[in-house]
Design a binder for these strands. Sequence first.
DNA 1: TTATTTTTGTGACGTACATCACACGATTTT
DNA 2: AAAATCGTGTGATGTACGTCACAAAAATAA
Lengths: 229, 229
Amino acid sequence: MSQFISKKNFEQLKTLAYKTIKVKKGMFLFQEGQIGENFFVVLSGKFQISKFSGDGKELCLRLCGPNAVIGELMIFSDNGRYLFNGRALEDSEVLAIKNEDIEKELLANPEFAVEFLKMMTDHFRKQHTKFRDLVLYGKKGALYSTLIRMANSYGIQTKEGILLDVPVTHQDLANFSSTSRESVNRELNTLKSKGIISFKGRKIIIHSLDYLKKQINCEGCPASYCNIE
Amino acid sequence: MSQFISKKNFEQLKTLAYKTIKVKKGMFLFQEGQIGENFFVVLSGKFQISKFSGDGKELCLRLCGPNAVIGELMIFSDNGRYLFNGRALEDSEVLAIKNEDIEKELLANPEFAVEFLKMMTDHFRKQHTKFRDLVLYGKKGALYSTLIRMANSYGIQTKEGILLDVPVTHQDLANFSSTSRESVNRELNTLKSKGIISFKGRKIIIHSLDYLKKQINCEGCPASYCNIE
DNA sequence: TTATTTTTGTGACGTACATCACACGATTTT
DNA sequence: AAAATCGTGTGATGTACGTCACAAAAATAA
């Protein structure tokens, strides 16, 4: 759930749903370019929001767990096509809400409308920071940014550093950074040799989040934007 | 003015302004990172919306003439910092509206709130397509995308093709494509040798917009998103 | 006009990064 | 336990593209 929607209005949002959908692991709930008139609230499971590039590579943008609102950026659009792919990483369940129903609710409930607008602004800003990292700071910036986001979303503080407590492969990191597995591998190993990170089994421990942040001018950006959700 | 805001509500929006500001050519109306509690409606002149990258290069995102709403993406944010730079390309004049005033109006006028939400969604989507072109289709994609956008915004149909009726240098195009002047030059000349474009004085004539669109999978995207405004 | 500045054109070169190839260890399946 | 699959590590090589250098052309100023 977005920090910007109050509990009351979030419950209200959920009452607008007209059905629940079960999505099996690996299946797409929606795909970019597809016409659709729903958006969704995740009830259980996990979704990956991504785009495909011209040559078939997948650029991952968000990981969404329970209470995330997904597929919402096509609301109010002329042609109503999804901008992204939403794929279940685990067996999942979502609430489906019709776009037209949300519009009715927004007209009827201005307080809700303002909160909804805040939530969308929030999503936009998240996406914007991702965009900035990718375009303005290159592949390395994108990888650092991904590590920082994962730390904010899944990091647990240990005495050695911040442990990224998610099973994530180099290929996954590459998908989030629009780069190649090999490049991720090399970059991680240079970071390791600099003492910025280290490995615990397959997981990553970050010793100096500050170093990563400094490289991409990520000063003072609140953890609420700078996450992977 | 956004296509999504009705004339009536746009006039209403303008009545919320508490002052007009004159901005001299070359001056910044707002800068990224700056704290501010206003957004603006352009009355006259022209503004360029941009971001600076780590190494000081400028990435241009929008060109905004009269009736454009600018600096609004920071509304409702925690810390209220501008995400972009807004610089006057000519002597210009804008209306300034306080963020808190727009929030009041949104609560009071749900119809307006929905229209405002649509306008912001529209901006998100524009920005999103720009982002897609840059990240997913590389420098070349960004340049093609810029040409297509300029054609949609400033192109006039002639018997030879679509004339981009704006004075624009290779450096300008480079700034919109996050690439270098030299690369733009080389790419334009290969496009010319392929017969896709030609030059008329300093201006560009596009003979095959379709070719450019095909390269970046820009199928069916309505001209209302795909512009530079 | 001539002089100066701006814009464009192009070769030479370096760097970042993708791709290919393949080895090795770890994990899962049979 | 053996086999198969998956994830990681690393060199070799190619390519896109940025940077530098400088020249020519065009536009603007003097």
